[in-house]
Design a protein around this nucleic acid. Structure first.
Lengths: 114, 114
DNA sequence: CTTTCATTTCGATAACTAACGAAATGTGCG
DNA sequence: CGCACATTTCGTTAGTTATCGAAATGAAAG
């Protein structure tokens, strides 16, 4: 019950939904997500930790980046079934479409090498 | 997007999930739900207004009671599909089982006539 | 082994939420 | 009409959350 409520809570924040919809395009590092959402890095990191804590996403260290992936084989049946619904939703959302265009333009090598 | 987030937020509160699972048994008035959850009436009324605002439940005035019903034909596809999942979940939850036993014992005529 | 830099953690603040009791609302009955 | 009573609204309080910038962490590269 509390597990389930925690999953719903994770999904109750529009910025976190945007992150999940972005990750459907491709795995992303923190700085790429930050660039798309236009929030402070620490804020994005916190959102990611919440999504990760309930199993919606997972992360992999790669070179100097932490790459976040959509979890396509979740252990929890709640996560599995809700993720499946979410994948089919918001295809017509203008915000999601705009985020995805930005995802295609953004490149961690450009963003982070100063 | 914000609609969807609002639905997830409504579902992110354990007491509100309990209310939805109770309403699967039968429609209930505010005082019956209050008796089962053991919260202040005003708190329960607020939870019900949140569930109603996003279309998960609806209410009907009947005599001196306001009877809340699970919305089994939601207009929103989000509500429809999430409700369907929720109906199949938490069957094994001890809290839900206990609430449902209480629902079967509770009677608005006994509760409210003093 | 020190510098660089992506990320996380910390500390602070403002906004929001759940909870309560009391007051207001509204409905049915005498 | 006016009373009884179920429900909602209001005002308050305590706890939580989203956000930021600064400091800490940790890993790769010179």
């Amino acid at each position: 019950m509390d597990d389930l409520a925690a999953i719903f809570k994770a999904l109750s924040e529009p910025n976190r939904i945007r992150i999940l919809k972005m990750l459907e395009i491709r795995p992303l590092c923190v700085c790429e997500i930050t660039a798309v959402l236009d929030l402070a890095v620490s804020t994005v990191s916190k959102h990611l930790s919440i999504l990760k804590a309930c199993g919606l996403i997972y992360d992999v260290c790669e070179n100097k980046w932490v790459i976040y992936h959509l979890n396509r084989r979740p252990g929890s049946k709640y996560v599995r079934e809700i993720s499946q619904l979410l994948k089919n939703w918001l295809a017509d959302s203008e915000i999601v479409a705009a985020d995805r265009r930005k995802v295609n333009r953004v490149d961690r090598n450009m963003l982070c090498r100063k």
